[in-house]
């Protein structure tokens, strides 16, 4: 697993929001999109279901649909347009399962 992808440049005084990514605790901030929350801690959002490797989003404006992530509770959310909420448990792998994609 590679390190963090996004780099915070400002606005770092916001209240913290606790989520987990692949089971490990991650400290996000209020107002973070899921994408920001994940990518300030990890290098990827998901793994392509077509076997061509990891992905970390692309357009950030809800058009490319390349940043849908899976939550442990089965929900699927578009990471660039969904705000992180406390308790969200995100899975970035491509484990098999009926809704793995």
């Amino acid at each position: 697993m590679s390190g963090a992808r996004f780099r915070r440049l400002a606005e770092t005084g916001r209240p913290r929001v606790a989520i987990t990514v692949d089971g490990a605790p991650v400290e996000a901030m209020q107002g973070d999109t899921l994408m920001t929350a994940i990518l300030t801690a990890r290098g990827r959002l998901r793994v392509s279901e077509f076997g061509d490797g990891p992905r970390a989003g692309f357009c950030l404006m809800g058009a490319c649909q390349d940043c849908w992530v899976r939550l442990e509770d089965g929900r699927r959310l578009r990471a660039c347009t969904t705000f992180a909420e406390a308790g969200m448990a995100i899975l970035t792998g491509a484990e098999e399962g009926a809704d793995a994609f």
């Binding site: 992808r5 996004f6 780099r7 770092t12």
Partner: peptide, 8 residues
Amino acid sequence: HQACAIGR
């Protein structure tokens, strides 16, 4: 929107 850069 997020005060982030996409990389270093």
